[in-house]
Design a protein around this nucleic acid. Sequence first.
DNA 1: TAAAAATACTCCATAGGTATTTTAT
DNA 2: ATAAAATACCTATGGAGTATTTTTA
Lengths: 299, 299
Amino acid sequence: MLDIHRLKIFIKIVELKSFKMAAKACWLTQPTVSQHVAAIESFLGLKLFDRNSKEIHLTQAGQLLYRYATEISALFDALSQSFELFKGKKIGTLNLGASTIPGDYIVPHLLGEFKHLYPGLKTNVLIRDSKDVIQMLLDRHVDLAVVGTEIKHNRLKYTPIMPDELVLIIPLGHRWWDIPMVEMSEVIIEPFVMRENGSGTRLEMDKKLKSIGIDPSNLNVVAEVGSTTAVKEAVESRLGISFVSRLSIEKELKLAIFKTVRVRDIVFSRWFYLVRDIFRTSSPLCSSFSKYLIERTQT
Amino acid sequence: MLDIHRLKIFIKIVELKSFKMAAKACWLTQPTVSQHVAAIESFLGLKLFDRNSKEIHLTQAGQLLYRYATEISALFDALSQSFELFKGKKIGTLNLGASTIPGDYIVPHLLGEFKHLYPGLKTNVLIRDSKDVIQMLLDRHVDLAVVGTEIKHNRLKYTPIMPDELVLIIPLGHRWWDIPMVEMSEVIIEPFVMRENGSGTRLEMDKKLKSIGIDPSNLNVVAEVGSTTAVKEAVESRLGISFVSRLSIEKELKLAIFKTVRVRDIVFSRWFYLVRDIFRTSSPLCSSFSKYLIERTQT
DNA sequence: TAAAAATACTCCATAGGTATTTTAT
DNA sequence: ATAAAATACCTATGGAGTATTTTTA
């Protein structure tokens, strides 16, 4: 049969123009090399070399084989090298899924830092609803996920990596602008802008409200919109107030477009989690990234 | 180790998403397939599949390997196919050497006929002096040669494939135009156009003259030129007369630019030979071509 | 519990070795 | 006569098998 080992021996013979020298170069004995040549020749049914005791010459068949053999050999070398790089984390792709808040405000920074450590890294970030992100992780469309809500599954492991807080925002000029704290009962009757169902922010908010005995459907919802940006635009347009992630309003607070107002006795704190499928083998780079994120949080 | 056999099994597993099915497809048993996967994994130091009793999934390492494996496998298939074609004479190159007369007037026609039988044929024809052509054959720069003179060598086998004759040509208006035959003594004193040394035609002529007791240096040489075409041009320009291959003056005879004149008691007949290096293995197409030429001559 | 892969073992083909012969310069 | 490749023969690794166990959905 033709295998890589044989082809490499054949290539060495061609390059060194000698069975004996090729044997030496391959750490074999001359008879072994002769056997390999005989094996290829009988497999192909063609002579590869014209040989006498003084010199050897490639036949046309030998020349034909040599062209393929070098190409195949080069591919094998490329393969080996790729795996060395892969194991050494010099190359690799990180396929991340993230829900909207972490996708916009966390993951880009984390990847920026990490890429500094591993310049060969390629990244794909898919931003979807938390539920969809988790499904993509289970479907192996992404390697890791970052979401703000825990959707339990026996294959998934959640590790908190970034604290966050849902804060009540009011637009410039709102009558609460100079009041540091309001009652929850006041919030309930105030016009409210709501995220769509499936959003992690919405889910966390609902959960929290229920935990303090409030039915979310009692809120005075004047609009239900599909993204954090849309919520902010709506609030800025004085359509109502809303709870949003503190991470998402840094710029607006600086520009005094919004103010945050505390709600008495209530803190909507939450975490964003790194989510891993423990049933899956992760690539060296992927493991490194997970480790990096977790260690980064602990300090 | 990684060899083609293993890679092909690996590819089948990926394609069929099952060790068991892959085993069947490769005419192996499932444990054997498992062993091969384990061998690759331990060689690379990386897991290729996440597997459970229900389904298997490629890891990133597996995906990386798959990309290379398919490419390598495709190259092997291409190699096999090439050799099938090569053995079946569907592809191949004929590297021919030929001296000037056969290169111009014989080989093109022979190749034309032969290519009809084997359309995949590629041909290279190098035209040189007979001596150079023979040297190229010995140096393996060409596979076969066609020359008009036998230069003996223990590695070379000459087979006559085409008869020829050196004929005396005179230009239109020459005083011998209406004389059918002249004496050799008349030829000797007539202005004569000579081919250069090294030319097969020159060699054959010298040989023949010597064999009938004439020293070629006694000819009344008025010009020594480097090609048959140059000889013909010189004769046409009434510089002198010359002996040339009958094959080379077909057109000129038709146009009555030349006439041939017989020399009493002398016929300069000769052969063109196919020359083979018997120490060399020839390609299937090359053998076919030799056989074709030889059989063609016998009929 | 059922289906797939892993493990344990056995066997034999063959890659690799040593010793020697053949071949061509 | 010499130097390289071919041949003959031996050994041992590992590829492929059968029988069985493990794993998890």
